[in-house]
Amino acid sequence: MPGTKPGENYATLMLRITLEVQLKDSTSQTVSYMMKLPHVSAAYQETWGKKKFSVFDIERDMFMIYVEEFKQLYCDVGLEVEFGAKCFKLDTPNEYVLLEDLRPRGFQSVDRKAGVDEEHILSVLTKLAQWHAASAVRVEAKGIYPSHISDGLCNEDGKHLLNKMTDGMVPYILRTLSTMEGLEACSEDIKSLAGSITRKILQAAVVDPEEFNVLNHSDCWLSNIMFLYEKQTGKLLDSYLVDYQMCKYGSVAFDLIYFLLSSPKLEIRINKFEHFVKQYYDQLIKHLKLLNYRKRLPSLIDIHKSLFKNGIWGYFAVCGVMAGSALEATETASFDNLFSDTPEGDAFRTLLYSNNSFKEHLKLVLPWLCNRGALQNI
């Protein structure tokens, strides 16, 4: 059966498989799995299916090799840390990722449109800090990640998709801004950026060896996070990251901007941005020290400098994950309609960037990005 609702997942087809299994003692047990499969459309092949490395192979490697390495690093210092579901390998040439269904263990997804409160945000930021710390220490021990793991979308294979998501969406963003008062300066900045956004994102993605670098999740938003609650009290116990298809080695700014512009409740998204960065930073330093990181520890100022330097990533978040998180569930939300040059695709993209919820997000986030210089074409 379908594993996600429309608008929760664009990149792959997600299925939930439920099995009734007869055990050796003749009793039965229900088990369930989540399976990701590729779309078969022309739009998918044009933007995602021509990559040199299959995104399904990349994600399986992440689950079965690198996540296990991160967990072992923590195990070696006496801390048990889990990042996501168990992954299984099948003897088949088909493209797939097969995962444990986390729901029977008590994990739940949350309303991406409403956003989450500070407690949930700090849980995710702690998990990101643990992930980032382990990914940096792993480089010390085993060297840099292979390119198909470290590049994400930021290479020639992903350039077309990045262009579709950024420069390709400018007309829709500008059309919406033309109906809104008070955002004229932001609109002018975006007009000046048009045609060069993809290039600027790829420039920002070049790894600066002088910075503190990690393996970013790169798609950290509420549709890719599940939360575990205590059954009796409803207390939040843990958060897991899912979907490791777009990991990118580089500045922590990529994950922080992406998550903090898409997932907190709107009323705390901007006015607590620096507070959340500080909470993340404290956890990052704590876990780097725990894992005996030998290089220079980044300062909080280093992190903020990188957030300013990589501000263009904020525009990528606005065009993509922030728009998706604000959209009401609709059957027209699909990979094909996001990217294909059809009347149906145009209608969906118009809805995606013109609905009232997205306008509320733009009204708050765009001036903030403009005031930080993130949209300057210099």
Rank of each mutant, 00 (worst) to 15 (best):
E156H: 10
S150M: 02
K51V: 12
S334P: 03
G250R: 02
Y33L: 14
S178Y: 05
A204V: 13
I201W: 06
F348W: 13
F276S: 01
I144G: 06
C319Q: 02
S262R: 02
S340K: 07
K272G: 02
A129R: 03
G311R: 08
L338M: 15
F273G: 07
T18S: 11
F56Y: 12
K359E: 06
C247M: 14
K305W: 08
P171M: 01
S299D: 15
L327Q: 10
M64C: 12
G314S: 11
Q279V: 13
E80A: 11
V77P: 03
V124Q: 01
I270S: 04
T4L: 03
E181D: 14
E20S: 11
L288S: 08
S32R: 00
G78N: 04
S223G: 14
G115Y: 04
I225V: 15
Y10G: 06
F348E: 10
L153I: 09
L237Y: 09
H160N: 06
R112D: 05
D57N: 09
R103I: 09
L128W: 09
L153Y: 15
E8H: 08
L128V: 12
L237A: 06
H120M: 13
C319K: 03
D243V: 08
L351D: 05
Q22C: 01
S299L: 13
V365D: 02
K278T: 10
M246P: 02
E100I: 13
